[in-house]
Design a protein around this nucleic acid. Structure first.
Lengths: 245, 245
DNA sequence: AGGACCCTGACAGATTCTGTCAGCAATGTC
DNA sequence: GACATTGCTGACAGAATCTGTCAGGGTCCT
């Protein structure tokens, strides 16, 4: 039996048995005690809560459901983690960025299937572009504080979003849009939307929006096509490879 | 990474992603496609319902309802998530950034006490500064690819790190240092270290380093004082509040 | 003190694993 | 039907990993 098989067997045994000893495990798996220690270390390195107790009557046990509750993340929290990881990978090669993918995979794997589907659908609508140019970065403002929450809600729930907008030339207008997508380019971000009144796909920069409000009356189904349309004739942006792991 | 680790990672990825291809998995896990096939076979042998579909648009998927399992992240993975979250909060106010703290808190709560301690100790040595100025950003290069892994190892394990360095004026030198800390300023990052030969605290920018190597012979205890010393007389940097939740 | 436990480091030989090459099978597209 | 795409399998040599042994360190209970 290969080491990989043995490690998984060991994990099953630890989860099953309440408490065992290294000696018993070694006999069970037909390897030396030293090897069992090594295997336990490997599992611990992977984050498994395995505790050893010294002294007579001691042993090894898996602390699965003892005080340590399984992580129960909300949809928003997983999206956060996903987005952050993508962004830091986009920034450049930072230390530890390699582990981001595996962390995301594990988080996704832990979610119930239906929720994982929702999450994937949500992430498909978020486009992470390369960080903005120095020029954009220089005149980037801040988004109105209440926009964040309102956008998140409208985006996830599929309801319309209304706001005041000042375009590049400073011309003001009042908009009612369907927020289909989100484009993030490091310090600034854009709402990829379909204008309800004009029926046209458009993108709106977050620091040019003001007085956001929910349009509960208007609901829509997120459509990837709108995102594609906006990105086609929008300002230059570079897509980043890397969908969901 | 050992095969055993890779097999478990593979399983997580299969459960996390809805459907992938051998090619993507191979790239992700950094092995050949043949090896991915072998690993999939091993998992199938253990009874995992993994189905492959031939033809264009085909792929591999995990059938069956994976139950809600607990998340077990590696130390490196938690550091990744922590660092990413900090960085994207530093960048600006992006949507969903509010949930980052609660996500981190939940992840931390799920760790065994001893692991949480390790994590805190590690994160205390990582300083997240504000994104670099446009000037620095303009002439920022890329780090040598093998530096990432080597630095991570040396940093966490407390072993020395050797490398060639070209300072601001382009003067080359060969260095042997103890990597005590890490300063991240958006696209660039610095190793906060103590020079073994000169005994002085110094900081080294990642894109000025080359030919990195482990110095297994030299071990050290991480010391916050070195970090403080380096940051005192280094170039300007702005600390970001926000320790671990 | 002493014994029953868990844990860690070093080392050499044995085992396993990995990439390459080569080919086959299934599925969809033109 | 030809073709491209994708999954799957076999063989093999070199490289990497793993394993047992030995030796020591802790902790806890009696």
């Amino acid at each position: 039996m290969s080491r990989a098989d043995r490690l998984m067997d060991l994990l099953d045994r630890l989860r099953g048995a309440g408490e065992t000893t290294i000696e018993a495990l070694a006999a069970d798996l037909e390897v030396s005690q030293r090897t069992v220690h090594r295997d336990l270390a490997a599992l611990r390195d992977r984050g498994h809560p395995i505790r050893g107790e010294s002294g007579p009557g001691g042993g090894v046990r898996y602390d699965g459901d003892r005080g340590v509750t399984a992580v129960h993340l909300t949809l928003a929290e997983v999206v956060t983690v996903w987005l952050s990881a993508r962004l830091s990978q986009a920034a450049s090669d930072l230390p530890w960025s390699g582990a981001a993918n595996s962390a995301l995979a594990k988080l996704l794997a832990s979610l119930p299937a239906s929720r994982a589907r929702d999450l994937r659908a949500l992430c498909r609508r978020v486009v992470v572009g390369a960080p903005s140019s120095a020029q954009v970065r220089a005149d980037a403002g801040t988004a109105p504080p209440e926009l964040l929450r309102l956008f998140e809600e409208a985006f996830t729930e599929g309801v319309g979003l209304g706001f005041h907008y000042c375009d590049r030339e400073g011309k003001p207008s009042d908009r009612r849009v369907e927020p289909h997508g989100l484009l993030v380019m490091s310090p600034v971000w854009y709402v990829l939307a379909r204008d309800i009144d004009k029926g046209e796909p458009r993108m709106f920069r977050m620091d040019r929006m003001s007085q956001p409000r929910r349009l509960d009356a208007h609901r829509f189904r997120p459509d990837d096509l709108v995102i594609a349309q906006v990105l086609c004739d929008g300002p230059p942006w570079r897509p980043l490879l890397g969908d969901l792991p």
